[in-house]
Design a protein around this nucleic acid. Sequence first.
DNA 1: CACTTATATAAATCTCCTTTCATATGAAAG
DNA 2: CTTTCATATGAAAGGAGATTTATATAAGTG
Lengths: 91, 91
Amino acid sequence: MKGDLYKCLNNANRRKILYCIGEEEKCVNEIAECLDIEQSLTSHHLKDMLDCGLIEKRREGKRFYYKVSESEIIEILEKGKDLGDKLEERC
Amino acid sequence: MKGDLYKCLNNANRRKILYCIGEEEKCVNEIAECLDIEQSLTSHHLKDMLDCGLIEKRREGKRFYYKVSESEIIEILEKGKDLGDKLEERC
DNA sequence: CACTTATATAAATCTCCTTTCATATGAAAG
DNA sequence: CTTTCATATGAAAGGAGATTTATATAAGTG
């Protein structure tokens, strides 16, 4: 397993991807469009997250659908967001 | 506020520091010794975490004591650890 | 006041990450 | 079987982050 959880979370595009496929699986182009980034960049990020087990991939014809593998990750993102907001208030 | 929560969490030394001062405040040298890293490096990491509001600093004579500012951060670390372990099992 | 202890900081270096660009692969459609 | 669509991959460029080394500051001690 390459890469780790925290590395995956330390990038806004990857976090957006997680939110984007958190509710329902999406294919690469849908994700790229959702984040308004290049397909290539999307694929790179998906690979990283796949490598660390955070997401899963399923083929359907020429498309690949991705989804979050453990829904806990969304909870962690929410907790992180809450804490981030709280820390901002301190400044 | 420089740096963000996820950046702070994306480094093993910084995570160790959080665990190290999570229970009780410690001064810089204690932290450096606890992690077995240089004082200088410790200070750098402490500054980053201070900048993002994750920890707090208190002076006592020539020493500075650091502690975690929001105990939630430890919960997030625990959740992250659990999820990390779970993801490892998949591979 | 000189010395020591505790911490901070700045510069330099090295490593790692992100993004872009070009290209490859592979399925489906005509 | 050529073209198109969907995705993956590799290399290169640029930037950000981690660590080390050397030095500064500031408090406490004799």
